[in-house]
Design a protein around this nucleic acid. Structure first.
Length: 272
DNA sequence: ACATTGACCTGGGAGC
DNA sequence: TGCTCCCAGGTCAATG
């Protein structure tokens, strides 16, 4: 599912129920996710309690009282549910963390591109997070940073925004939407982006991400909030999934093409 | 150092 | 109804 707003939505929901609660029991399915489960995972987390969950890029991070951190990535189809009554474990349920208070956290992922890791020391943390660019909502992601970072690149602006080392947390939906809102052609190389363009793009990214978080993310296929509700930013999409529909601004048809093996939706008249 | 392609998986929808 | 093909909110390793 998940880009930044979806992971943020999930993390906020977890924050409400996890803090101070203790891990009572852990279920691990027999199929592995993208990586094997952490060694002695069960032993290492049973009896530990959670401190305050947070998000970095598309990672949901659950710190424990012993300073270790459970890190979850949801790949393309991962979901996290917060439940309070036992339900049957289904085919794609891979991890369930049972808490002392009767609540449990269920990780489901049909495609198994996601993973769960345990950060146990500084080195684990560096391996996972060091290459990531700034958070789009932070002050470190600003027009000057962005312009300096991209003005010597031949890569298209679409590929640049998908690159987690430049700005962390955007994915295909929000990149398409941000380029449309900022009226930027997805094919424009970084070197052709002026400082003024950078300002606009950065502004549009912050605006869209903020709004998407408010709406609980975007439900297209897999994303649901941990309480089962949908993410309503779907209603705010202007180009993603709108091929052959009409552009909001100029009323011409939205186009769909493949760019670096991913779908790019855009209006060729508005985005220059 | 950089860009491009394919691989990892399953399920759902389109088209025949 | 059933088959085949193509598509999907992400990343990473292996190419050129």
């Amino acid at each position: 599912m998940p880009e930044l707003p979806e992971v943020e939505t999930i993390t906020r929901a977890l924050k409400k129920v996890l803090v101070g609660e203790t891990v009572k029991e852990l279920y691990l399915g027999n199929k592995q996710l993208r990586f094997p489960y952490p060694k002695n995972f069960t032993k290492k987390i049973i009896g530990e309690s959670f401190t305050v969950p947070f998000r970095r890029a598309k990672y949901c991070i659950l710190p424990l009282s012993n300073e270790n951190k459970i890190v979850m990535h949801l790949g393309m189809s991962g979901q996290i549910r917060i439940l309070n009554e036992k339900v049957k474990i289904e085919k794609h349920d891979h991890v369930i963390i049972y808490l002392n208070n009767g609540i449990y956290i269920k990780y489901t992922d049909p495609r198994r591109f996601g993973f769960i890791k345990l950060i146990e020391n500084k080195k684990d943390e560096i391996n996972l997070f060091n290459a990531l660019g700034p958070e789009p909502m932070s002050k470190f992601f600003n027009a000057k940073y962005f312009y300096d970072k991209i003005n010597n690149k031949n890569k298209t602006i679409k590929d640049i925004l998908m690159d987690q080392t430049i700005v962390a947390g955007l994915g295909n939906i929000y990149v398409n939407e941000c380029l449309f809102l900022s009226k930027t052609s997805p094919f424009k190389p970084g070197s052709k982006i002026t400082f003024k363009n950078s300002e606009t793009i950065v502004y549009c990214i912050k605006l869209i991400i903020k709004k998407a978080i408010l709406k609980g993310g975007t439900s297209i296929r897999d994303h649901i909030q941990p309480d089962g509700k949908l993410g309503y930013f779907k209603n705010n999409l202007k180009v993603y999934g709108k091929d052959k529909k009409n552009c909001n601004f100029c009323d011409q048809k939205i186009k769909l093409i493949k760019q670096s093996n991913r779908s790019t939706y855009f209006c060729e008249f508005c985005q220059k």
